[in-house]
């Protein structure tokens, strides 16, 4: 298990760059603690903006800062940032084309027992549906660092979703293959392709290992770039493996599954199955308990992959 959560890595990377780039600004909505941004606020008070519990204002202020040359990073719980601030994201960030990076923390069912208000099983759908908004779900701390380093170089809006707790490493410190907006191939295989994003990537990787023990060889794609989706990788997966299984910590509508299916259906129709949270308020509990309940585990992947292949 990794020692720190992905959201902490985001804070670390911003701290590393903020001294030499005074235009980097972090904004929080009484969320500096939950977003792991307290060290940034303490080290760079002049580059920190607190808006109070006002997520609409949070995003609009960031847009105003960006319009004047600042590089704002907005860190707030994904559940609020991706719904309460939607119109501000649409108008002030995406439509006005301001260089605002939105960091949705404790996304998916990270807040577990806090229930539906705090779950964000819709943020890929909401953010992804806005023209000009990019959506990234990094899988582990190492990839989060690579992604942040890349985002610091561009001037475009983006939404980055991370979970709440430390997650299992997918990569190692000295081996983090990463190309911006390109899926990372974690395993090669010819029987099917498992496409995952965010915290589900680790499960996909283990699921593929279990499948291999049963003689089924799955390709695994870490699709951290849900939008812009790496469509070439999806089409290649369809052509070369003939079946696709998607898995995501998101509802079934408007997420990774739909985007992958749309891409494959248009270019190379193949059998597709998807694993996700339900189109219903999720059961409450620890996030791992919730994943287990809905089968979003390595074992669940094995079952679903076998069903998918048996249907041929």
């Amino acid at each position: 298990m990794a020692s720190i959560a992905n959201k902490q890595v985001i804070c670390e990377v911003l701290q590393e760059h903020a001294a030499s780039d005074r235009d980097i600004i972090v904004l929080c909505s009484d969320s500096r603690g939950s977003a792991s941004m307290t060290p940034f606020f303490e080290q760079f008070p002049e580059q920190s903006v607190e808006t109070g519990i006002a997520e609409q204002n949070l995003v609009s202020i960031a847009a105003g800062l960006a319009a004047c040359g600042k590089k704002p990073y907005v860190a707030s719980p994904a559940c609020f940032l991706s719904t309460r601030s939607m119109e501000q994201v649409k108008v002030d960030v995406a439509y006005s084309h301001t260089n605002v990076k939105l960091v949705g923390v404790s996304g998916g069912v990270s807040y577990g027992a806090l229930g539906m208000t705090h779950h964000s099983a819709q943020d890929i759908a909401t953010m992804g549906s806005i023209p000009g908004m990019r959506v990234y779900l990094p899988s582990d701390r190492h990839q989060t660092r690579k992604l942040m380093e890349a985002l610091l170089q561009d001037r475009e809006p983006a939404y980055i979703r991370t979970g709440r707790n430390a997650v299992e490493d997918v990569y190692t410190e000295d081996h983090v293959p990463f190309e911006m907006n390109k899926a990372t191939v974690l395993a090669e295989g010819t029987d099917l392709t498992i496409i995952a994003c965010g915290e589900m990537v680790a499960a996909a990787k283990r699921g593929a290992e279990l499948l291999a023990e049963q003689g089924i060889h799955a390709r695994v794609l870490d699709m951290y770039c849900v939008k812009p989706l790496d469509t070439e990788a999806v089409i290649r997966a369809a052509r070369e493996t003939g079946a696709i299984l998607t898995i995501e910590e998101h509802g079934p509508i408007g997420g990774l599954a739909g985007m992958v299916a749309q891409t494959a259906a248009a270019a190379c129709p193949v059998r597709i199955a998807s694993m996700s949270l339900p189109d219903a308020p999720c059961v409450a509990g620890k996030s791992k308990e919730i994943f287990a309940y809905y089968g979003l585990t390595a074992e669940g992947i094995v079952t679903r992959a076998r069903q998918l292949l048996e249907r041929f």
Binding site: N57, G64, L65, C68
Partner: peptide, 11 residues
């Protein structure tokens, strides 16, 4: 107004 707040803060 909220966007103007951001612009004024930047200033």
């Amino acid at each position: 107004l909220p966007v103007a707040v951001g612009m004024a803060l930047a200033g």
